[in-house]
Amino acid sequence: MKEAAKNPEKWELSPPYGVKTVLLVIAVFIFLSFSARHSDIDKMFYMLGEAGGRILGLTDSSQVVSGTGRVIDSMFPLRISEETPVARIENFDRDNLPFFSRVETETIEVSRFNVQSMQLEVTEQSREILVEPVGYVLYAMKKMVETIEIALWATIFAIIISIPLAYYSASNYSPNRLTYGTSRSLVSFFRAVPELISAMFLVLAFGFGPIAGILALGIHSAGFLGKFYAEDIENADRGPQEALQAIGASKIKMLRYAVLPQVLPQYLAYSMYIMDRNVRMATVVGIVGAGGIGQELKGRYDMFDYGHVGTILLLIFITVLLLDQIASRIRARLI
């Protein structure tokens, strides 16, 4: 060492990258350009440019702008009230209307085939409808609460499942290689199953409704939490663990007293991220029939009720925003 210190002119400091790296970068570029053609990236930029031109008034037509415009036009006005024909309500009690609602009479045109004249005749009919001014918003909010509940239970189950999984897949706590390997692969498997697809099959098994959603989300997020928790256990400061090992504490006590206090803030942050994510994913898995607001969204979308769809989208947006705010406040207080 001392010899070398005297001859700095003989030291070697290699350049940061060589020909190999340059060739690799070129190869990556070639691959990406092929892949871009393959995935219509050029077309995407063309369409975006066309849309930009249309907005600035440079081009006459754009598929993107007209398509988006049509959807937005049909979404507004957003659907807020709920109107139900009185005739369709069972045991309608005129003296005891639901809160804030009123009965209106409207005239509708009914076309009927007249058998005598063999012609379609349009007659005017009047019917009574029950108008609840914010009825649909309330209904959608009820569905949103259901969605949040699905996410909450999925998170609770995920945490419960992932604690033993984390214990067995932390290399320094797992009793032997078999338990380590098994739980590691189980965690990877849970994570590898996309919740939308598992929800599709769980709906077949458990029927439409929240059960399928809770299970699909719970399994997927247990995979995530198991991995995160295990990595934190492995990376926790060894000192306190050794101190407790030296006085003869068992592994579970070591985890409880030397590891848990260190990793708890991190665990809470992960769990809250998973909760946040589960709320968003719960709206998505609803689309395949796993309960909550997603199911309502899918139904309305298929019936072209874009006014309703707009209300639902706005509600999802507001909820996610609010939850994000609440989560970041809680996190700031914990850490």
Partner: peptide, 11 residues
């Protein structure tokens, strides 16, 4: 045992 880096649980 008493340790050099105390090895206490800091939190």
């Amino acid at each position: 045992m008493i340790h050099q880096d105390f090895n206490l649980v800091k939190r």
